[in-house]
Computed example of a mutant assay.
Amino acid sequence: MSEDEAQDWIARHFGTEAKVGLQQLIDIVVTESARQNLIAPSTLSAMWVRHVVDSAQLVTLAAESDGVWLDIGSGAGFPGLVVATLTDRPVILLEPRRRRAEFLLVAADALGVSDRVTVHCARIEDVKITANVISARAVASLDSLFTWGLQCASSATRWVLPKGRTALADIAAAQEHWDGVFHVEHSITDPDSLIVVASGVTRR
């Protein structure tokens, strides 16, 4: 997928106006990346593919789950701020690193979504919130994410977790300790990369 194809995908799925807000997010992240290491420098030339569409596809995978979206380890705001830009749902961003949490607050305000976005400078295991959707991008294993975040989930919570090429092995390891419905989706930005979608997650 090229950068132009990524922008076309956003326009098809979310409308041409969505591109404006997402371009603003890109600009904010690129500017801040000169001050702190928000994203890998090698991805700066492919922001639409590597970060925007890679995040936005999660919205389509959670379309049937309304309500609060909780993003663990939000970092530069992917996928959390993309979700907030593309939807009208409440979004909670968890980021334990203070400088990044401060950046997320400023970015949410600049994007005009601060009325729906809450930023907690905290670890997931220290927060008690019930979320309809939980995401985490390149944070930890499924077993660790479920262990840390189970207190924020109900039986109806959908977990949307990009896991790259290790997804199937990660699911197998998690199923030693966890029950639930697990399936994988191929990422549209990299067909070899997989996204785990889980629901009804309970400890064995």
Rank of each mutant, 00 (worst) to 15 (best):
I39Q: 03
A40V: 06
P41Y: 02
P41K: 06
P41T: 03
S42F: 10
T43L: 09
T43F: 08
L44Q: 07
L44M: 06
L44S: 01
L44D: 00
S45L: 01
A46L: 11
M47A: 03
V49L: 12
R50I: 05
H51K: 06
V52S: 05
V53G: 03
D54M: 09
D54G: 14
D54F: 13
S55A: 10
S55W: 08
S55E: 04
S55N: 08
A56R: 07
V59G: 09
V59E: 11
T60S: 12
E64D: 15
S65T: 15
S65Y: 13
D66N: 15
D66L: 15
G67I: 06
L70N: 10
D71N: 12
I72M: 07
G73W: 02
S74L: 09
G75W: 10
G75Y: 12
F78W: 04
P79R: 03
G80H: 02
G80K: 04
V82Y: 10
V83A: 05
T85H: 08
T87W: 04
T87Q: 07
D88R: 15
R89K: 14
L94Q: 08
E95F: 05
R97F: 13
R99Q: 10
R99S: 10
R100W: 08
E102F: 13
L104I: 09
L104K: 07
V106C: 08
A107V: 04
D109H: 14
A110F: 10
L111F: 06
G112I: 09
D115P: 14
D115N: 15
V117H: 06
H120R: 10
C121M: 00
C121A: 01
C121E: 09
A122I: 00
I124T: 08
E125I: 02
V127K: 03
K128V: 11
K128I: 11
T130Q: 15
V133F: 07
R137P: 12
A140D: 05
S141N: 01
S144W: 12
L145W: 05
T147H: 12
T147V: 10
W148Y: 08
G149R: 13
G149C: 07
Q151C: 14
Q151A: 15
C152G: 15
C152I: 14
S155K: 15
A156S: 15
T157C: 04
R158T: 13
R158D: 05
W159I: 00
L161P: 01
P162C: 03
P162D: 02
P162N: 03
K163S: 00
K163M: 00
K163Y: 00
G164Q: 08
R165Q: 10
T166C: 00
T166P: 05
A167G: 03
A167L: 00
L168S: 00
L168V: 00
L168T: 00
A169I: 04
D170I: 02
D170G: 00
I171W: 01
A172F: 08
A172M: 05
A174S: 04
Q175R: 14
Q175K: 13
F182A: 01
V184P: 09
E185T: 04
H186R: 12
H186L: 02
